[in-house]
Amino acid sequence: MSIKNLFRYWRTVITVAEITLRHQWNDSFILFAVLIQPMVIAILALFMLRGTGDNYAMFVIVGSGLTGLWSSLLFISGNSINGERWQGTLEALVAAPLPFDVIIFGKNLANVVQSLLSMTASYLLAALFFGYSLEMTLPLLFFSSVLLSIFAFISFGLIIAPLFIMYRGIQQWQNAMEFPVYILAGFLFPIALLPGWTTPISYILPPYWAARALHETSTGAGDLSTIIFAWGMMLLFSFIALFVASKLFKLMLYKARVDASLNTE
C-alpha cells in the first residue's frame, strides 16, 4: 500500500474507521479483547511484579495495554476481510473504485484506536483499585510514541488480514499466535530473559519497537537517543510491512479473480 493513497483517500479511511467503530461496539467479544483481558493481565502482572522497581506499575499499565492492542489486531483486524465475506459485502468493496487496502487500513485504524482503551482501563484500574500514584515521566514523547505505535500496529495488521484469507492454514494457528507476540515483543518483561536466538525475531516485529518506545517514555528508562532509535526502527518496519501488504493485497485480489473464490469458504 502506498503512502500516497493514504493521503489521497484520507476521507475514506476516516469514514471506514467511524463505521467500523459504530459497528463493533455491539460486539461483546470486542469488549472482552479490548477491556476484560488486558485488565485481567494487568491485575496478574501488578500482583506478580510488585516490588520489582519504582515504575513497575506504569510498566504494567503500558504492557497490558499493548496485549489488548495485539489481541485486538490478531482477532479483529485479522478477520476484517473474512468479516466482509461473511456479511456478503466483500464483492462490493472489491469492486468499489478505490484501493481495497485503503478500506482495510481504515478498519485497522478503528481497531487500534479502540484498543487504546485497554491502556486507559489499566491506568484507571491501577490508580483507583490499587491506589497507585502514577506519573508519566516523558508525556510529550509518550504521546508521540502512541501515535507512531498506532501506525506501526495498523501496518502490521495489514499483512495479517490477506494472509489469513489466502492461506487458511495460517488462520488455524490464530489462537496460538496471541501469547508468542506478548513474549517476543517484550510487553511485560525484557526480551533479555529469552534465549538469544529469539532476539532477531523480536527485532523484526513492529510491536517490539512500539513496546520499547512506550516503556521508555512512560517510565523514563531510556534517553532521547534510544527513544528516537526505537521510533526510527518502528517506522522502518512499518514501511516494510506496508510494502509487503501491498503485494499481498494485489496477490489476493488476483487469485480471487482468477479462481473466482472471492466469496467462497
Binding site: 496478574l44 506478580m48 511484579l49 492454514g169 488455524q172 494457528w173 489462537n175 518483561f189 530473559l193
Partner: peptide
C-alpha cells in the same frame, strides 16, 4: 488436526511460556 494441535498443544505452551517468563522476571 492442525486446529486441534494449535488450540490444545501450542496455545497452552505459549501460555505457560508467557506466565513462566513473567514469573521468572518477577
Amino acid at each position: 488436526p492442525t486446529t486441534y494441535i494449535a488450540s490444545k498443544v501450542l496455545m497452552p505452551l505459549a501460555q505457560i511460556l508467557f506466565f513462566s517468563f513473567l514469573g521468572s522476571y518477577a
